[in-house]
Amino acid sequence: MVEMVARPYAAAFEAYAVQHPEVIALSADLTSSVEIDGFRDRHPEQFLSMGMAEQNMLSFAGGMGLAGYRPFIHTFGVFLYRRPYDQLMASIAYPRRKVRLMGFLPGITTPGGMTHQAIEDISVMRSIPNMTVLETGDATEVEGIVEAADSIDGPVYCRVLRGSVPRLFDSPLKVGEMRVLAEGTDVLVITAGITTEEAIRARGALDKAGVSVRHLHLNTLKPFDAEAIVAHAASVKHGVVTLENHLVAGGIGSMTAEALADAGLGKKLIRLGLQDTYAHGGSRPYLMNYYGLDAIALVRGIERLMGIETGIDEGALEAVRVDAVHSSVKAEAL
C-alpha cells in the first residue's frame, strides 16, 4: 500500500518560509484551498491577503520583487495565467522577478470544470522566456517544491498537488534531474505529476505481459533535459509514449517530439493526454478514465505503439485510489 501524506505543502511551506523572511505568501481568497491558512494564522506578518483580484496580485508581486522580496503567489493554477497573462509577462517574466507561482489543482485534479482546470498551463508557461516550470508528482516532491522554487534565479511556475498525496519517492526533488523509475528496453514511458502514479500502476501488469518498460518521471519541465530524453529514447526498441495531465499540444508530448526531431532520432511517439478538447467537471478517476489519462490508457497506447495485444484489462491493474469527496484534508469541495 502506498503511504498517503496529508497536506504536505502546508508543513513544507511554513518550515521554509519562517527561515526566510524575504519570502512572503500572497493569496487570492483561496487560502484554505491552497493549504496556507495555518501559515496565515501563525505568521500574519509574512502573509498578504490580495482578495479575488489576480491581475493586480501579479503586478503587485512584481513590485515586491523590486523591493527585494520573493513573493510566493498561491492560488489555483488557472488563475495564475489565464486572466493575468499580460501582467505575468510584463511585471514578472520579462524583468525576471523572483516570483514563485504556486499553481494548485493542475489539469483535471479539480471537479470545477473548464474554468478551474489548468490544462494548457505547461504549454503557456514553457513558451514564456525566462520562466522555469516545475511539477510535483508525489508527497516528497511537494515537500521539496518550496525550496526548489526559491532556488530559481527568476520566475518559476509550479504545479502543486494538495490534500492527501501519495509518497512515491524517498529522495528529494532536484531541479533539472529526472527520475529513472524503470530501465526496460521495449518502450520509453515519460510521465509527470499524477500520471506517474498511473504508469506505476500499469507497470506491474506490463511486466507480466512481457513488455519491458523504461519509465522516466519529470519534475522539471523547463528547462527540459532534451539530451537525456533522446538518450533514453534511443535505448529502447519500439518508441516512446508520453502520458500527461494536460493537453497533448504544448506539453510533455510536444517537448519530447521536439527533442527527438531536433536530435534527428526517428522513433515512434504516442502522446497521451487531453486530445485538443476542454474537459468538464467530475471526480479525478472518472476524468482520467474519460479523457484517457489513466493506467489503462497507457497500456492501450503501448499496445498501439508496439502493434501488440497484451490482454491486460482494468482488473489486472492495481486498484485506483478513490479520494473521498469530502475528505478532512480538503478545505471545501474544491
Binding site: 471537479p111 470545477g112 474554468t115 467537471g281 472518472y286
Partner: peptide
Amino acid sequence: DGSSVEMI
C-alpha cells in the same frame, strides 16, 4: 460523474 448538473 458524467452528469451535466455540475457543482460549479
